[in-house]
């Protein structure tokens, strides 16, 4: 298994290389980070513009710039220079990652627990009213765009805050990942965090829940109809044991790979949720880089996002091998 992991990681390096190169070429060739400066009125002196160009390395050729960036990163840990001065890309990357990470992890946990519970219940009580209701709700959630749901939740929260505590600070925070002046006590901090986490977590959990619960239901039904479950019942095992020890254990295998893959997507793609709730996570960093024509933070973001995708794809495969003894890693 270790050999497999190492081989996969090594094979991923060219992928990283190619994707960063591609993005670099696309963005650097079509974007002029100095455009806002040039367009300013009253005009900025040429010397200042040229100085900026040098600072950003724009006087070199594209391949040269890419090479400089690559060697700078690999050999010196230097992420490059941003358009905005004083922007430490490396540090920003890490802090953004952790902000997004805690949101996504919580959302995934919530979503997973709900999806497994509902998936199992609806499979066991197939065609019951519960099953139909859960399916209908699942369909609704699948059809609800994240931004619509996020906006709805925000407005309800605002109303809720108004009615419950009209003149004080909001109970359910609608913006940012933490209050500007957070309480100092430990409990207070937790409470503040929770208040801010509530809405975005629900929004993120929603979409995953919708697809995972249907997936789990289908997987569970397939397992429940299998011969070995029939044999387990014929052995005289209790229903709960058959369900949990035998059925669920098998039904979770496909779901676990799906979760690993979706997590990668969520980490990179929670852009909308972060934008609406104005969280300063990876999504925000990404959008900001785009808006400011800021090449190097964008590249840094890309390296991290791609690495996450690669790592989680690897986890998905490893998980499958661990859970299913029939699978032997190539």
């Amino acid at each position: 298994m270790i050999a497999f992991t190492v081989r996969r990681l090594l094979a991923s390096i060219p992928v990283l290389f190619v994707s960063t190169l591609l993005v670099f070429l696309i963005v650097a060739s079509s974007v002029d980070p100095l455009a806002p400066l040039r367009a300013r009125n009253p005009p900025i002196p040429q010397t200042t513009i040229r100085a900026e160009a040098v600072r950003l390395g724009l006087n070199h050729s594209l391949p040269q710039r890419y090479w400089d960036w690559l060697t700078g990163l690999v050999l010196h840990g230097n992420w490059g220079t941003s358009v905005s001065s004083g922007y430490d890309i490396g540090q920003r990357l890490i802090s953004s990652f952790f902000v997004t990470f805690r949101l996504v992890i919580l959302a995934i946990l919530l979503s997973l627990i709900l999806a497994i519970a509902v998936g199992v219940l609806t499979a066991v009580r197939q065609y019951s009213r519960l099953d139909y209701a859960a399916t209908a709700i699942g369909f609704l959630f699948l059809s609800l765009p994240t931004f619509v749901f996020a906006i709805l939740l925000k407005s309800w929260a605002i109303e809720f805050n108004q009615t419950v505590r009209p003149n004080g600070p909001p109970i359910i925070a609608t913006l940012f990942e933490a209050s500007p002046n957070p309480p100092t006590s430990f409990l207070g901090k937790i409470g503040d965090s929770a208040g801010h986490l509530l809405l975005p977590t629900i929004v993120l959990a929603l979409v995953s829940y919708a697809s995972w619960s249907r997936f789990q239901r289908a997987s569970m039904l397939e397992v429940l109809n299998s011969d070995y479950i029939r044999l387990a019942r014929a052995k005289g095992l209790s229903r709960s044991r058959v369900l949990l020890r035998h059925a669920l254990r098998n039904a979770l295998i496909p779901l676990s790979t799906q979760v690993a893959l979706d997590t990668a997507g969520l980490l990179g793609g929670a852009v909308i949720t972060e934008t609406i709730f104005e969280w300063h996570g990876m999504g925000y960093m990404f959008i900001q880089a785009i808006d400011n024509y800021d090449l190097y933070p964008l590249l840094a973001w890309l390296v991290l996002a791609s690495t996450l995708v690669i790592v989680f794809n690897l986890i998905a495969d490893l998980l499958y091998a661990v859970l299913d003894p029939r699978i032997r890693l190539a």
Binding site: L231, R249, I253, L323
Partner: peptide, 27 residues
């Protein structure tokens, strides 16, 4: 169901047709 559970496997046992799928693959 509870009474059946006590009988199954202890007083009355069953063998099924397809051995390739009768056993749980993960245990």
């Amino acid at each position: 169901e509870k009474e059946f559970m006590q009988l199954r496997g202890s007083k009355i046992a069953m063998i099924f047709q397809d051995p390739m799928t009768s056993l749980n693959p993960v245990y």
